[in-house]
């Protein structure tokens, strides 16, 4: 089922690696799919972004690109916490994982998680991001 969305569109990147945050932001910029990029260096930072902007739906992301391997709170632990956020915050937000992992366990775990659309492999490619975008969003304006 497509989610109806209108611009401006926001994407949130969660990655402990600053270089990857930079690279992926650039790639998203080039893809022109999103208007605003929210960069978080940890799962904790991402969660506090949600609580800080709790009332303002126009600040919350439409898509989260989530790294798996992160210190302290890894991608899967972030999802466990994300699950507990109020429904209305998540209503227009989807999650894809973005990782360089080749580990079967990680891949299966990601695919089994009901919140995860897909596990995207690093490096991110604009065409793959577009495929996920078109399969899930319907731009109404």
């Amino acid at each position: 089922m497509l989610i109806n969305v209108e611009r401006p569109l926001r994407v949130m990147l969660i990655d402990d690696n600053i270089i990857d945050l930079k690279i992926n932001s650039k790639i998203i910029l080039i893809s022109k799919l999103f208007d605003e990029i929210i960069q978080c260096q940890s799962g904790e930072e991402a969660l506090s972004y949600f609580t800080m902007h709790s009332g303002k739906l126009n600040k919350l992301p439409n898509l989260i690109l989530l790294d798996i391997q992160m210190p302290e709170m890894d991608g899967f632990e972030f999802l466990d916490n994300y699950k507990l956020l109020p429904e209305e915050w998540k209503a227009n937000c989807l999650v894809a994982m973005l990782s360089s992992t080749l580990d079967f366990g990680d891949i299966r775990k990601a695919e089994a998680n009901p919140y995860v659309l897909k596990l995207l492999k690093k490096p991110l490619i604009p065409a793959e991001l577009a495929t996920i975008f078109n399969a899930n969003f319907n731009l109404t304006d």
Binding site: I19, I23, N24, I27, I30, Q69, T101, K122, P123
Partner: peptide
């Protein structure tokens, strides 16, 4: 093996990502 797949490959994949960006730009 698990740590190879992460620690060794992650920075390499960043390099490949940068090369992709260089192409796109």
């Amino acid at each position: 093996i698990y740590s190879i797949s992460h620690e060794l490959r992650a920075p390499l994949v960043s390099v490949i990502g940068i090369v992709n960006l260089v192409k796109m730009e």
